[in-house]
């Protein structure tokens, strides 16, 4: 078995090298899904979700995120492959598997005429749990829905409906929670609340898998990040490692006097001139090329190129993400 101490250089899928060594709560093996239309939405997906982590699944529209979640939760039939949830096969042992999982779907599919209280109690019953008003009350209070408990769902705003769906998913005390774009169409305050709630849930041992289009969200919340593109998992990595490994850093220099061209002796550096030659930007790999920053500054001094200001900038996950899912140029 591979040592877990050294991380292999940037590679496409690292889930197996790590996944085998840690306690995974969801284990997806060679999963494919071909829809009736003939469209292959998942291509041999392998993924291990670790117990107790917050896992963010990123990917552009149509990448297969919802399909993947659907297979695990039982709303989509897999074409081939296997999924284990807490050790239970999601098909052969669906009762045990599903009773551990809560799903908040991407679409705002709610009842209309039922009250918030009734619909949440319904969910609990559906998942085979006896009535527990105290738990439902706790969930509704945490989601600021307690005042709305007697309201019909159709009278609620979109953000409240989203919270009702979360309450339904939490009604049966799941160990695994899937949040498919929980913050789509949710205002800033509510998004904060939701992040807070997700972290609090994790504190209680719940494993959370969320999809999002807000990279900021993944950056803030996730322990690990997976990127899916065109039905393939292209990357699974610790967020911190990912930032470290993939993160480009930029050194931005405001020059004393503008340059017309970059001196040929600096060809080894990835440099760009902007602001009519008044600004020089050096792009380098944060982890591997840290030393180059010093040598560049030294070389500039040798050439007599002075600067008035200097700043560095680290690339965000968003940039990493875009560079991954863009077709290779």
């Amino acid at each position: 078995m591979q040592s877990s101490e050294h991380f292999p250089e940037l590679q496409t899928v690292t889930s197996d090298s790590l996944g085998a060594l840690v306690d995974s709560i969801i284990s997806v093996k060679n999963l494919t899904k071909t829809y009736a239309s003939g469209f292959q939405a998942l291509k041999n997906v392998n993924l291990e979700i670790r117990r107790g982590e917050i896992f963010a699944l990123l990917g552009p529209n149509g990448a297969g995120k919802t399909t993947l979640i659907g297979v695990v939760c039982g709303t989509v039939n897999p074409s081939s492959g296997a999924v284990l949830a807490d050790g239970h096969d999601i098909i052969a042992d669906y009762r045990a598997a599903r009773s551990k999982i809560g799903l908040v779907p991407q679409e705002l599919s709610t009842d209309m005429f039922e009250t918030v209280w009734d619909t949440v109690c319904f969910s609990r019953g559906l998942f085979g749990k006896p009535k527990n008003s105290a738990h439902i009350e706790k969930v509704l209070r945490e989601l600021s829905l307690w005042d709305k408990r007697a309201s019909k769902i159709m009278t609620l705003s979109g953000g409240m409906k989203r919270r009702v769906l979360i309450a339904k998913a939490l009604s049966h005390e799941p160990q695994i929670l899937f949040l498919d774009e929980p913050t789509a169409g949710v205002d800033v305050d509510l998004r904060r609340d939701m992040w807070h709630m997700v972290r609090a849930l994790r504190e209680t041992g719940v494993t959370i898998i969320l999809t999002t289009h807000y990279i900021e969200e993944a950056e803030q919340m996730a322990d690990r990040i997976g990127v899916i593109n065109k039905g393939e998992i292209v990357l699974v990595e610790e967020k911190s490692v990912l930032m470290e490994k993939l993160g480009k850093k930029e050194l931005i220099l405001q020059l004393e006097s503008p340059l017309k061209v970059i001196p040929p002796s600096l060809a080894q550096y990835e440099l760009a001139l902007s602001k009519e030659g008044a600004q020089l930007t050096f792009t380098f790999h944060a982890a591997r090329e840290r030393a180059k920053m010093a040598t560049l500054l030294h070389d500039l001094a040798e050439l007599g190129i002075g600067f008035t200001d200097l700043q560095t900038r680290e690339s965000s996950l968003e940039e990493i993400f875009v560079s991954l899912v863009r077709p290779q140029s």
């Binding site: 939760c73 039982g74 709303t75 669906y94 009762r95 045990a96 598997a97 599903r98 009773s99 999982i101 799903l103 779907p105 679409e107 599919s109 709610t110 009842d111 209309m112 969910s123 559906l126 998942f127 085979g128 339904k168």
Partner: peptide
């Protein structure tokens, strides 16, 4: 039609 069937499908129910 409304999509709420997702919950029944994802429930531990035969």
């Amino acid at each position: 039609f409304s999509g709420t069937i997702y919950e029944v499908l994802s429930a531990p129910i035969s």
